[in-house]
């Protein structure tokens, strides 16, 4: 779909360039110049990339008349978009140095992956929501929670990096610019709570429709979704009950996020089937 003279994928490509540049500049400032890049400066750059990405996703969404969530490329892009949105609108409250750099690196990696594999962006991409905005909200919220868990995986990585530097007495690299272990553990808990609440809301909405027509959702998709929800729920419980050390908790946050990403495969294949059942004719299937 062409919008403002560019194809939707071209907008996403431009956004990826901005995210990659932000990562490169912030990394160069920290590792070579030994300076912390200004938080406002990073936020402005990431926001610019996010606006470009929003235009790209909006252009894609115009084909469907709804959220573009019908193939793996769109799922990943929407997750990245959610993670960046969380960084832009909630991140400043955390006041975490280098979060912008880590978030833009996260966006760069996933955007490059989604743009590289053509098979992720199948031309069958058609809406999966039928006429119900609630199903669309269910899917969007689920992906938004994945974005939140993505940021959680980043702050967990920051914790492990900082903890390792302190343990090994290596004060170089990102050490001077990373926040304290205490701040990171507190942020991790808040992110886990936010992500879990969003995912729970998504599943609550989805369950209303599922109970009406239990056969509408594939078993793999249902199992994967519940497994992810349960995994984060258990993690939350273990964290509250202090059963995990902060290090174990951080590794678990990263591990569960990787598993959640892999579970998108099940969601994607299910979505594709549902989309084809809806027999929606896209306004443009041209890529």
């Amino acid at each position: 779909m062409i919008l403002l003279g560019l194809e939707d994928r071209q907008w996403i490509f431009l956004a990826t360039v901005v995210f990659a540049s932000t990562t490169g500049l912030a990394t160069y400032a920290a590792l070579r110049l030994r300076r912390k890049s200004s938080r406002a400066y990073t936020l402005a750059l990431v926001s610019f990339g996010w606006i470009l990405q929003t235009i790209g996703l909006y252009a894609r969404g115009l084909q469907y008349g709804g959220c573009p969530l019908s193939n793996r490329y769109e799922l990943v892009q929407f997750m990245v978009w959610s993670a960046i949105a969380l960084y832009i609108f909630v991140g400043p409250a955390f006041r975490v140095s280098l979060l912008g750099m880590f978030t833009s690196a996260f966006a760069t990696i996933f955007s490059i992956l989604s743009l590289t594999f053509d098979s992720w962006d199948t031309a069958t991409g058609a809406p999966i929501f039928g006429d119900s905005p609630w199903i669309e909200a269910h899917a969007a919220l689920a992906l938004f929670s994945y974005g939140t868990f993505g940021i959680l995986a980043l702050t967990s990585a920051m914790y492990l990096l900082q903890s390792r530097s302190l343990k090994q007495k290596k004060m170089g690299g990102f050490f001077p610019f990373l926040p304290s272990l205490f701040e990171l553990t507190s942020i991790n808990l808040r992110l886990l709570l936010i992500g879990f609440m969003i995912l729970s809301s998504s599943l609550a909405i989805g369950s209303v429709y599922w109970t009406r027509e239990t056969g509408a959702v594939d078993v793999p998709k249902l199992s994967a979704t519940i497994a992810v929800w349960l995994a984060y729920g258990i993690l939350l419980l273990l964290r509250y009950r202090q059963f995990l050390s902060y290090k174990q908790f951080s590794w678990a946050c990263i591990g569960v996020f990787v598993a959640a990403l892999l579970s998108l495969e099940a969601v994607d294949s299910s979505s594709s089937k549902e989309a084809s059942l809806n027999q929606y004719v896209p306004l443009s299937t041209k890529r």
């Binding site: 030994r34 900082q162 302190l166 990373l178 304290s180 272990l181 205490f182 701040e183």
Partner: peptide, 20 residues
């Protein structure tokens, strides 16, 4: 002006990296 250069202040900086 970066980084502490006396032992007491280095210890304080490390404390803040752990406890905020």
């Amino acid at each position: 002006g970066e980084g502490q250069i006396n032992i007491s202040n280095v210890a304080v900086d490390l404390s803040m990296k752990i406890f905020g």
